[in-house]
Design a protein around this nucleic acid. Structure first.
Lengths: 333, 333
DNA sequence: TTGAATTAGTAAAACGTTTTACTTTAAAAT
DNA sequence: ATTTTAAAGTAAAACGTTTTACTAATTCAA
């Protein structure tokens, strides 16, 4: 069964393609198509189950009602939750989301942007990595709405939604210090993205402000994408060799690996060993003892992102760029 | 800056559009375009950064190199992990994935199928729900490759990849029985999908085969999409009111809620109260005590799905439908 | 009663590709 | 010296829409 085209409908209704198109797009009134014709055509459309070919439509109009979402890794719960929220909200406004993971590869990120571009997505929501500034700039000069989230790119002047990573990190370390911790470690990753750097800066600054010397060897940078077992080994050696009494994990998956490491060396979390994870995760609430975590307000972030992009999409004139910083919450458990 | 079209390239190179098209599509040799022209055109393409408009391409060719993936909920780690694996593998073969969540709504699922259809995706990977049989059948009569996974639809004759839910459930219950458990509960959901039904059947059959009477009130069906707190309350009343010594959770998110419930009523898992979760999750490994789980072989499932769909896509003739059942593993912790 | 305005609708161009069927020139075969 | 074949390339149709500019018929105004 050949799929129906607008032409088939036109023929069946005995009117022109133009007329059908006007009716489909709600412009019938405007273009003075009679009520009778409208009814007749609509009936035929309903009965036949005709659905306009969006590809043809996009080719003609230049837009797609699709928003591209580029994230680091959909299997990371932070991103998958954000993605779900964004998808939900976009869907309600008639937009679809295509998403794809960069896995922190600059090449893949560039490729994704190109793919989205050649598929004529209407806007971009990107959790960016360094090295794609140029590509994003091209989108901007092309007048495409771009919203960065989670991480900012300082060289790029566009919209950004994120939380205050510096502050959250700073406060986490301060909470350790208030509890009398002295040897506070930071386990982070080696990827060079603003949000990770800020977490490191917050760590450093909190130490300095509290007259605790900063020791390079208390900061472990785990190679992104490395095998988890290796990560666990690295952490075990950190936890064993140093007199650490507290550790901040800069991402939730690092914290999870960290918990595994601690379990393996039978080190218990408690009075003399405190832990905070960045980005909450179900594991932390259920862990015994439960684990404190920096909780980013996912719902708010998603809401802001989608609201920003939709207002860009609907406004004909270029809106002013906005930087929205939403506070994180330290959930002490 | 207007975006470049194939025509711009043709003009710049002083050749016809046809020639450029042949070169782009690697048909230059075939169509006897001289080496010199090929080189020249390729150089211009490289320098100008021209990327073919995929929309126009799709309109003309009728395919998109996009595979649609329809799942229940991307924020569920089972699905997000599968999605990531599928995306990865598809990507390597030059296919992109568009995914979207149904949230177990028949209407949304139908809408998604329609959206994918009107966007001319080349194939469909669907974790289906009851009520969309007709829509899937339409895809099939339309000769589109469809792979169902995780759950099968018995009315539909197409490809399916999944694990043996009946068996895994059966074995889980048997393992309880071997440990001397007598009052074994099942916490499941009320959604009417084959995979959930099979888990219930496995539970029942294992009891029967071991001469343990089946009690209706040991099976709790949690309403899908209901607020988690309500779920937790329901579970608390189950765990408190009955003399239960073991419980199988039919999904990982139910198990997580269950663990929260247990924590709230201070019931500890151990000698006289055993737990198994269906679908593994990081929580279970790290929980104290760690929680046994039925582990579906995600990698294998993803691999099989993608391999099936790719072979369908590349073969001109209709291939025979395959039902691939991959065994799950009960991880005893 | 004529010209203007309104109503109801349509023909055809355009979006950017791919692909079929064709042309022209040169080389090879007879 | 003619015909055949091969090499190198191109014109134009087609994919399914949207949209602009148009026509024809009717009504209205003066």
């Amino acid at each position: 069964m050949k799929t129906l085209s607008i032409k088939d409908i036109a023929v069946k209704a005995g009117v022109s393609i133009t007329t059908v198109s006007f009716i489909i797009n709600g412009k019938a009134k405007d273009k003075s198509i009679s009520e009778a014709v409208i009814k007749k055509v609509e009936k035929i459309i309903k009965e036949s189950g005709y659905k306009p070919n969006q590809i043809a439509r996009s080719l003609r109009t230049g837009h797609s009602n699709i928003i591209g979402l580029i994230i680091e890794d959909i299997s990371n719960s932070f991103f998958s939750r954000i993605a779900r929220l964004i998808e939900d909200k976009a869907y309600k406004k008639g937009y679809k989301i295509i998403y794809s993971s960069t896995e922190n590869s600059v090449d893949k990120a560039k490729e994704l942007i190109n793919m989205f571009k050649s598929r004529k997505v209407d806007g971009y929501i990107i959790s960016p990595i360094k090295g794609i500034e140029e590509d994003i700039q091209v989108l901007l000069t092309d007048n495409k709405p771009v919203i960065l989230f989670d991480r900012n790119l300082s060289d790029i002047d566009t919209n950004y939604v994120g939380s205050d990573h510096f502050k959250a990190s700073y406060q986490s370390i301060e909470s350790f210090i208030k509890k009398g911790k002295k040897n506070i470690a930071l386990v982070t990753t080696d990827i060079d993205v603003e949000q990770i750097v800020e977490r490191l800066d917050g760590y450093k600054q909190a130490l300095i402000d509290n007259n605790i010397p900063y020791h390079d060897d208390l900061v472990v940078k785990i190679h992104f994408n490395q095998d988890e077992n290796e990560t666990i080994e690295q952490m075990k050696s950190l936890f064993r060799s140093k007199e650490i009494d507290a550790v901040l994990f800069a991402t939730n998956y690092l914290a999870i690996s960290g918990l595994k490491a601690l379990k393996q060396i039978n080190k218990t979390i408690g009075e003399d060993f405190a832990v905070i994870a960045y980005d909450d995760h179900e594991v932390f609430e259920l862990h015994t003892p439960s684990i404190s975590a920096v909780q980013q307000p996912l719902e708010e972030i998603a809401e802001t992102v989608i609201q920003l992009i939709l207002s860009q999409l609907s406004s004909k004139s270029k809106l002013e760029n906005q930087q929205v910083i939403i506070s994180s919450k330290l959930i002490e458990r």
